[in-house]
Design a protein around this nucleic acid. Sequence first.
DNA 1: CAGTGGTCTAGACCACTCA
DNA 2: GAGTGGTCTAGACCACTGT
Lengths: 266, 266
Amino acid sequence: MGYQQRRGDTLQDPDRRPPSRRIADELRERIIRGELSAGAKLPSEREMAQAYSTARNTAREAITILRNEGLVDVQHGRGAFVRTRPSLLRLGSRYSRALREQTGLSPYRAEVIKQGRTPRVDCTSIKRIRPSADIAHRLGVDPASKSVIRRENWYFADNQPVQVGVTFIPWTIARGSVLAKQANLGPGSIYGRFEDLGHPIVRSHEEISARMPTPEETRGLAIPPGVPIMQVVHTSIDQHGVPFEVTQFVMRADLGGLDYTIPVDD
Amino acid sequence: MGYQQRRGDTLQDPDRRPPSRRIADELRERIIRGELSAGAKLPSEREMAQAYSTARNTAREAITILRNEGLVDVQHGRGAFVRTRPSLLRLGSRYSRALREQTGLSPYRAEVIKQGRTPRVDCTSIKRIRPSADIAHRLGVDPASKSVIRRENWYFADNQPVQVGVTFIPWTIARGSVLAKQANLGPGSIYGRFEDLGHPIVRSHEEISARMPTPEETRGLAIPPGVPIMQVVHTSIDQHGVPFEVTQFVMRADLGGLDYTIPVDD
DNA sequence: CAGTGGTCTAGACCACTCA
DNA sequence: GAGTGGTCTAGACCACTGT
């Protein structure tokens, strides 16, 4: 058979939306109104096709639209469900020594525990590498030699991956210290060690952006469709204005957000 | 005809990817390698279908995948093109009086001009309203009466909409001032006026998150598929620790990002 | 006008989930 | 095994862009 029949409307406001959009719009409306609440199961594709007198593919297209908006979560063999919004982990630039000594916990751990979940941080790799031009520039090191240590950390909440952080440290600073070798950095975490080495963090610079994940990120962080990632490039600066560490974070935007409190000078 | 023929592979590593994914992966590879550079036109759907011996819908599905990743830009009647990454506007928390008086420009205008583009900011609406529970809580005002002024601002670069900001100000502060009435706030912009009213900004709190846009945001900001938005809830705090203004920003993540420099106290 | 994407149809088989 | 989503086919007409 041919194309869809136009909706019979010779009046002022013909519904110009194609059926797939119309179905998506109606479902979205019902989700936002709460008629379909979080976790609720949508009608199956075949049911919806029947209900709207369309082909299954058309109903399916409608669901795809909502999926790409991050509104529904489709599970193979089970159905499509209204996505539950987990409360966001509020992370941010929290590097003060007071905080380190007070809680004995990293800001990440503290935040996850606050939400009644179980934190885990895995250091999966420590290598000495040749830095990218960008990293070399940020740290003021030689881009042509193995001038930095690269540490990769994965952050979990209840065993669910939330973010990855890749830290770059000039070899001249890390050489001989635990930073260059050990996964476990001891009390006060990494900033405690930098302080031991004569580089207390006195200023933090953060560049934040958001985009859709690459396929690698989608796999690694188990990111569902319709969920973007936030990317933070963090630079730590010491008392002499010297950048001594750069970390690139990639986090699932549906699980976390960032919080900053910034003093405003004259 | 029936289902796709499996790729003839009785060896160890059969390619388990469905054709649409495989085509998408190959195109993505070519884009990342630079073989298809920014702005380049992809083969048409019909050409790709022919080249891969699939139905047109299958080739189309592959393009849709890349589109949802934000990698390609599809134009009706013209073709699909590798998306150009415009340089990001780096915005952030820049509220110092010095900056206000130095340039005479708002941080937004300064940043857009720096990129050789033409800024425009339109104040499209000023109303006295009853605040949402969230806003009322943040400002410490009555959620049951018209206790706040709401100002809506649209930010453009070369007439392209980049972000929207909705500002809420307690009526008790805005009453009688230009804040409650006028679009144009004069030199030093809005923070100059708050200072005139006895509320210099001494601290800024920002909560940042990212998500896919709602259909309204997609329309209003002309956001292409596969592009998320960043949302910032900004709170200004005065010398007495009193929050005197909340602004909710929504910005296209492909056009802008955020930059923060944060001092770290002991 | 030809060419491109946008959308739909009707039917098919595969892969996963759950009782 | 019944039901659900995942994917594909072959063909169709619509709507937009260009020459």
